[in-house]
Design a protein around this nucleic acid. Structure first.
Length: 101
DNA sequence: CCGTTGACCAGGC
DNA sequence: GGCCTGGCCAACG
């Protein structure tokens, strides 16, 4: 494993989120000592569709991404529901799905 | 070198 | 829960 820039650190952490659970940008940011915005940016430009489960990251309120990079929030919702994540409404997961990792 | 943008957050009300 | 504010910071033009 060579040098990891900040984005790769984010991706390797996201890969550890178990199926059926989600975590927050802030939790990842805190663990990597970076700003939550930077985590959001890294996922926005994530080049590893299918390799990094970026659909398992939500904001502090449990809200999914309004402009999820791979097909919009509807796709993110589908991916999560397929894994058993329950939703409170169209844009929010039930908070008991959120883990801190 | 700015000014702006954005998959954010903490805290207050 | 919602709405604001101030803070945050990489990237882009």
């Amino acid at each position: 494993m060579g040098m990891m820039d900040y984005k790769e650190k984010v991706y390797s952490l996201v890969k550890q989120i178990p199926k059926g659970k989600v975590t927050t940008y802030g939790a990842i940011a805190k663990k990597l000592s970076m700003s939550p915005r930077t985590v959001g940016y890294a996922l926005h430009v994530n080049p590893y569709e299918g390799k990094v489960p970026c659909h398992r990251v939500v904001n502090r309120d449990g809200r999914i991404a309004p402009s999820f990079a791979f097909g919009g929030s509807e796709i993110q919702k589908e991916l999560l529901e397929k894994e058993g994540v329950k939703f409170r409404d169209e844009m929010h997961v039930e908070k008991d799905n959120i883990i801190t990792i």
